[in-house]
Design a binder for these strands. Structure first.
Lengths: 242, 242, 242, 242
DNA sequence: AATGAATGAGCATTCATTCAT
DNA sequence: TATGAATGAATGCTCATTCAT
């Protein structure tokens, strides 16, 4: 007689596994935030999780697997969290503002998560397979990005945004700057406040404000001029030097 | 074989040591750019430098020492290089533009150096003593930063920049965004171009353009309105969520 | 649950256990043939058997136990199989030929089993208790060995075999050579055919043929000469060197 | 000034390294002979060599590397040792006898080495790259093998060996049997003597004697008959059974 | 009988660094 | 200054097995 499949208390077993996994990930997130991914050893992580070495390996195949799980969780959480900010807004511009506002909020309330993403970008993004990344990023980015792009088009159409903007270019230029700024602030942490004498939150929100200002239409931009720098002699960028 | 005339023998010894140091640093920079600081082992670095293990330790006390030297060199080079861009400009705004232009140039011509700085920000800046960092940063930042700050004040005074700007806050908000954007682009490398379909250089220059636009005065900003987002419902940032 | 009529229910239980055991042993035999005894982990064996770790241990006390069972099964099968070859023959010499023929057949049709025995001889035979081995070997060897020994005696008596043979010595010298040759061919597998350019089967049958030739009487051997090498200068073996 | 190459006491350094390597190999050979390759852990081997873990790895890249070195040394020694036996003989048949005699000598004086080769054949030969093996085997085999082959041809020509022999087939059939027999005896060790009641040396020399007898010409073989078994009903090998 | 969970002991190997000459 | 040799302290991971249900 073969064993009956018959889920024996599926909820209990599942729940236990999930709890153990969460325990490990929490411990890992803590250690990694304090020491960096590479400097966190499995031994430390294991000690922090209060489980035994071999037990850990029943839940994750190896250290990388843990880091990926952490990355996935971070992105999932961000997607979930950002959704609220975006959905609350009714207008398109409001949705963009919501997305950026979410990022400021994330920086303020969960700097460890942002720092983790910063580490990831700086040290691993180049090495790990794009496909894997895209799967994770897809969840989060597609949400706001589509809206963003559409909105820029609308903004240009109705004259509220500068006519010279290339929607796709603008989207990525702004998002990269916002993400880059956010992660750098999270990475430097207290050092920023000491060195710059400004609160991280205020600094980041000012960055967002300036960027949004930079997208707005002015009389000039809707007429002839291609760039704000032109008048002031900015932007006549030397085309490469070395 | 060393020169004879002006500075004869002492130079031989010094010159040799300098050459050896340079050799080690070059090897280290290469390996680190390809594998990251932590993942580069002394053994690899030694193999790449074509010297013997114990010889390396005649020049650097330990691995950290090498990384610090690399950081110092990167900043020194940047300071030297940026000086030209800034000094070439005659007006204040031109100097800012020169500084930002230098950063675009650096990203395009020496992404490895930018990547190294990105790694540093993301993983080590928090751990290493502020004083040490400040000494290094001082060289570079003070150059452009003072100018920048002064210029913003002048710009506000002459009405070319928005009156609501706080010079210090603006300075750091913009510089952090620019540096963050630059480093993120360097870190992601070819991935950006694949994913975003935009050239890194174009993306970064557009970021600069938008930021500079964001600083400029418009009728509105010189009147009552405090923020561009206000009108569009932006910036009424929820004050924390979680 | 106890039996009711003749053998109704108990068989169900027994049969299940036997099926499970067989399943495990088959999986183990496969893995071991491909990776060797030591390199086969319980985890692999368990995966191959499609059972759960703890279930395996309901059937076998430990890994050694599985290997012993495999060895027992191999010998049992061999005994059963060889019996046919031996029993089919009517003459004594025919029985020996049958035994050797069986070994060629085994090598050709079940090299995995031979390989397993080779591993066993090479790596474990020395460690494991003689008694245990003797019990297993007894089944198989006694069959042909008794016959072999008797036959050699008869052969000498009737003049068909060389008179200088010591039955017991000859028996073991021949059997050891045949078994050694067979197992080596099985172990090297395809490598033999590549390196030697000969089919394994042909090579082994030629070995048997030469050995049997070596036992046969010739005029000389039945007269004075003790050894075929004597004439040719063979066999004046140096008595130890190092 | 670059370092002078100028061999600084090359003899001393070299000699030291060789001594250390030998020390490790000796320790490894001992442990492996007693426990088998897989069951010998690096920790044991290291303890036996009286060096520290990391020192070992300055001499060998990994465990496999040590095993290969052992194999190489075993073959090299065998080649060197066998050369004497072969070269001492003046006639071709004498050379063959010398080769076989060497194998008996090796079994008697250095059973550990033979056992090691037995392990290798039984467990690793199939896995490791042929090329690597061929390089090592080349040294040893080519010596006697070429002679052997030539000799068989000559023997057939002058009527001292059976005319029905295929030189290549015979060569490999005999050598495989001799090597197989030798290795099995070495592997089983004292067990053989207990079980068979015969000394290993005597058993092996008898095997050689029978094989050589099997090659010799008799009247019959030089006439019509193809096989010694034919007359006695041997060799009518069933063509496969299962 | 079946199985999910857990684990102690160990594994091969690496790493940055030091020492003696 | 250069370097061959050595090494303590990890490091990430595996394995056969057991326990509780």
């Amino acid at each position: 007689m073969p064993p009956k499949p018959s889920q024996p208390e599926p909820r209990t077993y599942r729940a236990h596994r999930d709890r153990q996994r969460a325990r490990i990930l929490t411990a890992a997130a803590n250690r990694i935030d304090q020491q960096g991914i590479d400097r966190t050893t499995m031994a430390e992580l294991i000690a922090a999780s209060q489980l035994r070495t071999s037990t850990i390996y029943q839940y994750f195949a190896n250290k990388d697997d843990i880091v990926w799980a952490l990355l996935g969780k971070a992105m999932e959480d961000a997607a979930l969290h950002s959704k609220k900010f975006v959905d609350d807004a009714t207008t398109g511009l409001g949705k963009i503002a919501g997305l950026l506002d979410f990022m400021a909020d994330e920086l303020a309330t969960n700097p460890a998560r942002v720092r983790f993403m910063a580490q990831f970008d700086a040290m691993y993004a180049r090495d790990w397979p794009v496909e894997r990344l895209l799967i994770l990023e897809g969840q989060f980015h597609d949400q706001g990005f589509q809206v963003f792009r559409t909105l820029i088009r609308e903004g240009i159409a109705d004259g509220s945004l500068r006519a010279d903007l290339d929607p796709d270019l603008t989207l990525h230029a702004v998002m990269n700057a916002v993400i880059g700024a956010q992660r750098r602030l999270a990475s430097l942490g207290a050092k920023v406040e000491l060195e710059y004498g400004q609160s991280i939150d205020r600094l980041f929100r000012e960055t967002i404000r300036i960027l949004l200002f930079g997208l707005r239409a002015t009389e000039e931009t809707n007429n002839t001029e291609p760039s704000p720098g032109a008048k002031a002699g900015i932007g006549k960028t030397k085309k490469r030097s070395s």
